[in-house]
Amino acid sequence: MESKNLSIGYSKDNKPIIIQSDLNLQLKKGELCCLIGPNGVGKSTLLRTISKQLNKQKGDILINNLSINKYDFQALAKSLSIVLTDSIQVPNLKVRELVAMGRFPYTNFWGNLNKEDKEKVEESIQLLGLQPLTERNFIELSDGEKQKALIAKALAQDTPLILLDEPTAFLDFPSKMAILAELRKIAHNKNVAIILSTHDLELALKMADLIWLFPEKNNCKTGIPEDLVLSGDISKAFSSKILSFDLKTAHFSQRMETRDVVNVEGNSIEAEWLKRALVRKGISAIANKTNSYTAFYDSSTSKFMLQKENEIIVTFDRINDLLSEIENIN
């Protein structure tokens, strides 16, 4: 799939409103591409434009080197499948029936499944590990299971391109990981191109073969995650007054005014969590002998210690007690 000088947007009162322009994007089969960027930069608009639910404003989109203008709905249905965040509220729709709906573009006038259709449906169900759920009603599933069922449906549609809008929204962290790992496996093993939009930057950086980064305005960057991090594009796009992006850990942290400095000694797990607690409270925790406070964890007594200059050492059972002591002194 590729786009040439593509402008996306929508029409309002017959006037085009362009959200992103001059997009020149490419994606090969077998690659998992994550579309990231802040809210309102046109991630969903791009996906809806590719799937022809929205008209493109300028330029062209090619699928298998053929402009999407040349595809009618039926041909497009065999070329790309979608997974959306829209909720499906159909009672009595079994998971197997939903997955089988992916075979729509291939079935006959009455929608009956032939042998090949049935095989594809079962294969998709197995790939996503949905065997125990096939006879369950779709609306009774958890959010993660629903997402998997919809991906299985898209897979049964047997298209070289799959688009997913926010497939990890509403999921807990382990489910997000699981879904992305599943999608990467599908992209690599079944040799399909997958584009998904997401807000989970850290996950995207970890799992994507390719990143399409949409910063605020008309300045789309593409590349593999590592290159985009090193070039500073990622931190430029997401950093703000309250968030800073840590290049080393790929984590975002809250920017804080630091008031005090406490010297935390040691590298134990407890010392690391003590540092985190101090940072959260706006206290800079660095190993520096010149500070007036020193805090450390004594593993022999399992207690947290705090020493002010050369006064006596105070011991605490919990980090919370230590924090309130520091607040009291100030």
């Binding site: 799937s51 497009l76 249905a77 709906m101 573009p105 009455w110």
Partner: peptide
């Protein structure tokens, strides 16, 4: 019957299934 089944999933999915 067939297109009505696809419509259950909503307009976007129905269109994506070739309706």
């Amino acid at each position: 019957m067939k297109p009505m089944n696809a419509m259950l999933l909503g307009d976007a999915y129905a269109q994506n299934l070739g309706i």
